[in-house]
Design a protein around this nucleic acid. Structure first.
Length: 522
RNA sequence: GGGCCUGUAGCUUAGUCAGGUAGAGCACCGGGCUUUUAACCCGGUGGCCGGGGGUUCGAAUCCCCCCGGGCCCGCCA
């Protein structure tokens, strides 16, 4: 059984409508790591629907979280906003200076991410957490938390092993400049929390408005109750012993709720570079990933891995593997006696394919391209026009008639991949501009004389694939060379390799002048 | 220090929750096709399932111990 279906089965036991939630702090550019947070939850949501359960998928944006520090991409001007919720800070301009504030910091980073989500078929209900504070939905839980502050303080200290000060208070009011830093609570009387700042300025915060927020560990537990959350997969940072999941569960119960089961997912790493981090530049954005990888394959990357396994995201050679594996699964026949193990395996991969579809419920076969990534990569490099690619694919019986939507999309992604730095060098077709010594030594006398013959024939030939094919054929006839040797000679001269794409296509695409220039030095 | 994940063929892994004779892909080797698209088709080699102990008629699977690898524990997915 696929992990998403397994979770759905467990959730069925709760008996309530399912509310599957993701939560992310929009403190900077989103990266593909966030995609695992989103897709893990969204796939469980889809599995619930598939199982006939009532389910909603909600993306809670942590827009009430404060700016922690001035990140590298921000100008010093942001110093003044430290401690202020991201919803109330102006978005940065491209140079890192604060903008006029038409768009908030939170929205600035969130919006492009939501666009990317559409492309992979994810349409969450969006909850901006600061609005939940603004409209007073948190007030009852804040009031309760303040009254039970001793018990909560005890839970956090016991479970997390952290020491909290005697005067710890489960609510952080925002001071005169909107920041939560440096504010000391002096007293509470519903609905007001009274405080004093570092300069002795005092004021009051109305807990029914966004005048402050609960600290993370409480905020999380409280929102589970407010939104009726039944499932919220969290990154492994929250899953550590004594982490926020462990404190959230008893705090949620104390506040009168029924917490979700603890689900912890592993992180995505960039191939060979460890965990992603925006500050170290080890990052790849969802939009960048989507420009290279077809959406269903990107979903498949998440769907195929169990929640607890870390994923090595590799935009190089492994992507061929991944895409071909996807294609293969689509057409894999189930033969012979079905043992229990085989049943499990088939169910799991069927689930992974189902979860990978951009449109829920669509037939995975509709996403079948019918051409391997490797082959398409080659064609994309030697055919500059899409139409020529389709012609070639018809000729090789990969497709018949008009290209499918899915393969058109594949080719367009393939073209960006080929042009990007991520495309693996081993798959790149490098046209030689000159013949180096090593290659020259590999070309036999036979091949050399064949190539000279070919060069002469090409020089007088019409530049079309058919004529070029004829030229090659005639040259072989006139040279007393085997077809095999002839072709490997061509590839050695043009590519510096013994194999290559169909020679006539390759030569046609390179152009007469360049081909003759290469062959002239034989 | 506390905790999580992980160790199955050269590589990537499925199977572990619900114990019943180890599956796959890549790579490799061989064959087919051969006026060769790195394509395509067919076949094959290769595993004391990290090590040890226990439970069981039976363990990759459950329990215990050990070893190796990765990661988390202010905020970060």
């Amino acid at each position: 059984m696929h992990w998403a279906d397994f979770r759905a089965q467990r959730l069925r036991d709760r008996g309530t409508p399912q509310v599957i939630v993701s939560g992310i702090t929009p403190s900077g550019e989103f990266h593909i790591g966030h995609l695992r947070e989103i897709l893990t939850a969204e796939m469980i949501h889809r599995a619930c629907l598939d199982a006939g359960l009532e389910s909603r998928y909600v993306f809670i944006v942590d827009s009430m979280d404060p700016l922690r520090r001035v990140y590298d991409f921000l100008s010093e001007d942001y110093e003044q906003f430290i401690g202020v919720p991201l919803a109330y800070i102006p978005a940065p301009n491209t140079d890192g200076t604060p903008s006029n504030g038409e768009t908030s910091y939170a929205e600035h980073f969130l919006n492009p991410f939501l666009e990317a989500l559409k492309e992979i078929g994810v349409f969450p209900e969006i909850v901006m957490n600061h609005e939940t504070y603004e409209n007073g939905q948190f007030s009852e839980k804040i009031d309760l938390a303040i009254r039970k502050r001793e018990e909560i303080r005890e839970i956090i200290m016991r479970v997390s092993g952290r020491e909290l000060p005697e005067d710890w208070f489960p609510y952080s009011p925002r001071g005169p400049n909107g920041s939560m830093d440096g504010i000391t609570v002096t007293s509470y009387e519903y609905p007001h929390v009274f405080w004093v700042d570092e300069n002795g300025v005092s004021g009051e915060s109305d807990i029914r408005r966004a005048d402050g927020k609960m600290p993370w560990r409480l905020d999380w537990a409280a929102r589970w109750i407010i939104h009726g959350v039944t499932c919220e997969p969290a990154g492994k940072d929250h899953g550590a012993a004594g982490g926020s999941y462990d404190t959230g569960i008893p705090i949620c119960e104390l506040l009168g709720g029924s917490p979700p089961d603890k689900i912890v997912y592993e992180w995505i790493q960039l191939k060979g570079m460890g965990p992603m981090s925006s500050s170290s530049g080890v990052t790849i954005g969802p939009m960048e990933a989507l420009s290279l990888v077809p959406p269903e394959i990107l979903r498949y990357v998440i769907a195929r891995s169990k929640i607890g396994r870390h994923i090595e995201f590799d935009t190089g050679g492994a992507l061929f593997e991944m895409a071909d594996e996807y294609e293969r699964l689509l057409t894999m026949p189930d033969e012979g006696e079905i043992t229990k193990r085989m049943r499990t395996r088939i169910d799991t991969r069927e689930g992974a394919l189902r979860m990978s579809q951009v449109v829920r419920g669509s037939d995975p076969l509709e996403s079948f391209a019918g051409v391997s990534f490797r082959h398409l990569a080659m064609l994309a490099q030697i055919k500059s026009s899409d139409e020529e690619v389709w012609q070639s694919l018809r000729k090789s019986n990969h497709i018949s008639g008009e290209p499918s939507r899915s393969i058109i999309s594949r080719l367009s992604k393939m073209r960006s991949w080929v042009e990007s730095e991520h495309f693996p060098e081993t798959a790149r077709i490098n046209i030689q501009t000159e013949i180096d010594e090593k290659t020259r030594s590999e070309i036999s006398d036979n091949q050399a004389s064949f190539l000279r013959e070919l060069s002469a024939n090409l020089g007088s030939c019409e530049w079309s694939e058919n004529s070029i094919t004829d030229a090659i054929r005639n040259s072989i006839k006139n040279s007393e060379i085997t077809g095999k040797d002839a072709f490997s000679g061509i590839y050695l001269a043009i590519l510096g390799a013994k194999h290559g794409p169909r020679a006539s296509s390759l030569i046609a695409e390179i152009g007469k002048d360049d081909v003759l220039a290469i062959l002239s030095v034989i």
